[in-house]
Design a protein around this nucleic acid. Sequence first.
DNA 1: AAAATTATTGCAGTTTTTTGCATGGAAATT
DNA 2: AATTTCCATGCAAAAAACTGCAATAATTTT
Lengths: 249, 249
Amino acid sequence: MLKRERQAYIVHQVNLHNKVLSNTLSSEMEVSEDTIRRDLQELSENGKLIKVHGGALSPSFNKIDSPHYDVYALKSKRIIAKKAVSLIKDGMFVLTGGGTTIIELARCLPLHLQATFVSGSIPAIVEYMSHPNIDVIVLGDKLSKVSKITVGADAHARIKTIKADLCFLGINAINLKHGITDNDWDVVQLKQQMIASSQRTVCLTIAEKINSLQPIHVCDISKVHTLITELDPASEILKPYVDAGITVL
Amino acid sequence: MLKRERQAYIVHQVNLHNKVLSNTLSSEMEVSEDTIRRDLQELSENGKLIKVHGGALSPSFNKIDSPHYDVYALKSKRIIAKKAVSLIKDGMFVLTGGGTTIIELARCLPLHLQATFVSGSIPAIVEYMSHPNIDVIVLGDKLSKVSKITVGADAHARIKTIKADLCFLGINAINLKHGITDNDWDVVQLKQQMIASSQRTVCLTIAEKINSLQPIHVCDISKVHTLITELDPASEILKPYVDAGITVL
DNA sequence: AAAATTATTGCAGTTTTTTGCATGGAAATT
DNA sequence: AATTTCCATGCAAAAAACTGCAATAATTTT
């Protein structure tokens, strides 16, 4: 790994998480802490970050800019993303949908992970794109302005031709009786095909959406292999899903 | 292996992987590291890549940390974009490639314009996406990491099925004798098909690239209908192109 | 086609950059 | 106050970059 690459990664991480730890960076990039310290030194001289004991902070962090923007949900989504990441192994072929949870997942992908991601979600693709070891396949078709994902027969047909190891879906509603439900017709078409084209379906959602219902049916609960929320898997609210045979993380 | 070939290969590798290592290139092409270093030196002088200790990185790599990068060129590109926009009429079907000039064009699209844009360039799509009246068709395929555009047989085949009113190409080199030339094999394939699939081809470039040459041939000058630069159309340097029958704006 | 010119390449020696390690001291934690 | 963790400095080894130079290859001129 080149020095500049390393420093770019550090800046990326700082901007993403507002802080970095020297020892984390050191083990992630497999260089000594001295090297990290020297990198932080240089970057701080260039104003890219603020060096503190044990790591560094984002320069824009000191100004109290927390725009009261659903910090809780973001935190939850980050927890979900962390759990989801642990399922992805080197060399896997992964199909992902759109939505903020998936974008958070994209941001949390470890540096060394080598995998192929297939998606029609533009914001997710933008994140995958900046990862050094991820191959990205873009699903083309007409772009839906609201969901920022490509929808239509072309995308559908393309998904049909592949068989992915994993499929990550950010879901809008899940419910034991009705399974996964959603509110966008076009997006539902895609999700159904994505489920059919993957060996394992992993659903990501914040706990808030558990046991809720939306107008359009996506699939039965039996099609879901894994469910990830920010809660402890032993949590009471998740028990019915565990009992239904779903792996809950 | 010729110097030209070697350098084209290096550029290709940089565009594909975001980085190259001197010793890897050296052993891959069986030349000394000195030669590689001299190649990187030249390419870096031409802005094709950024030389760092141990190899080189894609130029788009540190565009992130210097936002006021190349302000002059940005100004030029904005002028070009303004001229280009004037060619687009309501209801048109427009095919666009990638590159910073095209992105600038995307940002300049007037609010009321209603048209359909087809592109495989992620940054361009991100811009189109935020426009209220533009329909966007995404060309899917494998994403090239630093040209940030989808390339491959799928994208090629898809373009082949359409016939656009206009095609906007940001070009890397134009020259009366050799026409349009470029340095990335995959991108060239797409550009050729885009030209073939459009009624009018409009080339955008900053004056700097006029009368220059790149290793790979895209098309003859006769295929170009319109050429847009930041210069006055009556400018001396553009005269040969006007004489060749090209509409120069 | 031959000769002259120019460009390109590899090599040897030197210099610079980068990195990891050791030491002693500073800062935080308990 | 003791202990652990983190930081600064100097140092040495390795890798990479630069320099000048000679040999070779490519291009142009005659």
